[in-house]
Structures are given as C-alpha cells and as structure tokens.
Write a protein that binds this DNA or RNA. Structure first.
Length: 240
DNA sequence: CGATTTTGACCCGCGC
DNA sequence: GCGCGGGTCAAAATCG
C-alpha cells in the first residue's frame, strides 16, 4: 500500500520539528530586529538538549531530519538525503524565501517559497495513563514520562512519509473538529518505542500533520534486520 | 503463513 | 462525579 505512495509528485517543502514540551525561549524568541529564528549553532545547542531543528527535502516520499538525537536521525539517513536534495536548514538561513517566525510561546511557523510547514509545540507532552492501570487487567503499563515530540505539517498526497523507518499502524481515530481520521503508527523495531501520528487538516486535505514521539534506538537501515535488540554502539542517538 | 491493517472496545486524563 | 475526547489494545480481516 505504502509503496505506491512513494511515487507521488515531489514538491519542495520545508519541514520543521520541535517538541511539544519545554519550548525553548531562545528558539521561540525572534532575533533582534527580525522575525527569524536563531542560527545553526544555537539550534544545535537546543537540539543537544533534546529539542528541535529544521530540515527540508524536495522529496515528499523521503523525510530525513539531519540532526543527531532527533527521532530518526542517523548518518545513514544523511546519506539517503543526498539523493533527495534534503538537508539541514539553519533557522533563518534557509533558501531564498524561507523564513521561520516565532508566533507564540509554543508555536513556530516555518514557510518556504514553494511550500509551507508549520511546527507546533505545546504543553501536552506527558504520557497519559498511570501505573495502577496495569493492575486492572487489559491496559499495559503506560509510563508517565516526557517524550520528545516533533510535529510536521507537510503538503503531500501521501499520508505516510518515508522517513527511513518501518512503521506499523496500531490505531485510527476520528478526532473532533477534523474531517479526517488520525492514524497511529509505532516503529516496528523491537525495543523501539517511537510512535507517530498522522492526520490531515480538515481545512486542506492536502496538508498532512505528522507528529513523532520518542527517539529511535536503532538505525533506519537496520530496523527490520536487527530485531534482536541491537541498539547500542553505532547509534549516536540512543538517548540523552 | 507471517506481517500488517482495520476497527470496536476499553482506559484514562481533563474539564465542567 | 460524570461525560467527553484522545490514545491504546487486541481480535479479526486482509495482504504479500
């Protein structure tokens, strides 16, 4: 199913990602005299703290952020990006026509000349649920811990962007105030708890919102081959 | 036949 | 306390 989706037209689009939790003041605040986000070094600093950055790609079928520590970043992904003209875009220093504007405390809007991407952040990043639930029967243990979340808004004909990882759909839900159902995916790699949600904007069905949650504990290229829990050593982004 | 998707039910947090 | 809404589970169906 997803295979054919990769053959859709590719439009240049800028992607942004940011955690819902703990929006960084340094990133959210406009630079003096302009409404652009800080330059790369600061982004890297923020990213090292478990936060965010921006990447862009001309290929909607391939989505590879390029910073270590984010859910799906790895040198292998970098290599894959070369063929799709994707790359890291420092805030405020992207292609002509690209800009990033901090609007509110928890929202970053990034736009590009030929596409538009919105990155939202908010206070709701806690895992819901509680340990006692596991004692009641069906519900498995849900951990009340913060996971980094990265939200993309992308114009695409396909729901599931190819980010180099293998995903398994585990749920679909019709959400309020949305004409389109929200799909829930989980990384198929064992010991990897990364999840993502995919939904389309009700206002514009071509806009796809993808929210990643958590960090991959393996490489994109080996996720289906190393199902035995090999997530140490070469992975530079296992955890902070 | 194993992997993946679908889908209804269940659980839990939050607002009222 | 109750109802709503979001997130997850798991059995059944479907796919490759």
């Amino acid at each position: 199913m997803e295979g054919s989706q990769l053959e859709t037209a590719c439009l240049p689009t800028l992607y942004a990602f940011s955690p819902y939790a703990q929006p960084s003041p340094s990133l959210l605040a406009p630079l003096p005299g302009q409404h652009k986000l800080p330059q790369l070094p600061l982004v890297q600093q923020e990213q090292a703290a478990g936060n965010h950055g921006v990447m862009f790609s001309s290929d909607h079928g391939c989505l590879y952020p390029l910073l270590p520590g984010i859910p799906f970043c790895h040198p292998a992904a970098n290599a894959a990006c070369e063929k799709t003209t994707a790359g890291f875009a420092p805030f405020g220093a992207g292609e002509a026509g690209t800009s990033a504007v901090a609007k509110a405390d928890n929202e970053i809007v990034v736009t590009a000349t030929t596409g538009a991407t919105t990155c939202h952040g908010g206070p709701n990043s806690w895992w819901k649920g509680s340990a006692p639930a596991a004692e009641k029967g069906k519900m498995k243990v849900r951990r009340k811990m913060r996971e980094p979340r990265f939200c993309f808004q992308t114009r695409s004909d396909v729901d599931v962007l190819d980010d180099g990882y293998k995903w398994r759909k585990y749920g679909q839900k019709v959400v309020k105030n949305s004409l389109h159902p929200r799909s829930y995916y989980r990384c198929t790699h064992s010991n990897c708890r990364v999840k993502k949600r995919v939904e389309r904007l009700s206002e514009d069905c071509r806009m796809v919102i993808t929210t990643y949650e958590g960090r991959h504990t393996h490489t994109p290229c080996s996720d289906d081959a190393n199902a035995a829990g090999d997530h140490t050593g070469s992975c530079a982004f296992t955890s902070f």
